[in-house]
């Protein structure tokens, strides 16, 4: 078993475990902390695919910026004592989990019955995931989408400020 395979199973199991912890914890702060572990596990999986720049971005943007924002909002909301956080039992939970397991089973059967034929990463994988190559493609072929994303971020900033304002005055 190669090192890559070992790390795939390690980070894959960690990712699934952390994701399950996120959706089952009652306290949103605990969920948010497990979420950081999930993002770090995904960063490890990106490294097994030799996507080094994506792995760094994952840690910086998700585990760094987005989770700080989420925890900040949880602290701001002051959700009261833990007793009130208890969720009522609902038959939806069992039904949704069963349907989810069925969906994963379908994916498993489908993928095993029709192999994609790609049994190993491309030999150029580490070259493709390098900052040089990604920057080269991003700022030439994908320049217009890149600029469009900057507009999207501007719109999101304006939207967030407007929504979070207490009262809109002319």
């Amino acid at each position: 078993m190669s090192v890559n395979t070992l790390f795939f199973f390690l980070f894959g199991a960690a990712g699934i475990g952390f994701a399950l912890a996120v959706i089952t914890r009652r306290n949103p702060v605990a969920s948010a902390l497990w979420m950081i572990g999930y993002f770090l596990a995904l960063a490890g999986l990106y490294l097994t695919l030799q996507a080094s720049l994506i792995a760094v971005m994952q840690v910086l943007i998700y585990a760094g910026a987005i989770m700080v924002l989420v925890i900040f909002v949880i602290m701001l909301l002051n959700l009261g004592n833990p007793e009130q956080l208890r969720e009522r039992f609902n038959p939806r939970v069992g039904l949704a989990s069963a349907l989810g397991a069925l969906l994963v089973l379908q994916f498993l059967v489908f993928l095993l019955s029709r192999p994609t034929g790609y049994t190993a990463p491309s030999p150029k994988a580490s070259e493709i995931g390098s900052p040089e190559n990604l920057g080269q493609v991003l700022f030439t072929d994908y320049l217009f989408p890149f600029e469009a994303v900057s507009l999207l971020l501007l719109a999101a900033v304006v939207g967030a400020v407007v929504l979070a304002k207490r009262k809109l005055e002319p």
Partner: peptide
């Protein structure tokens, strides 16, 4: 042995 592409796709589908 190396992992086939399906391993990553199945993990992604599970998550």
């Amino acid at each position: 042995s190396t992992l086939p592409l399906e391993a990553y796709l199945l993990l992604s589908a599970t998550l």
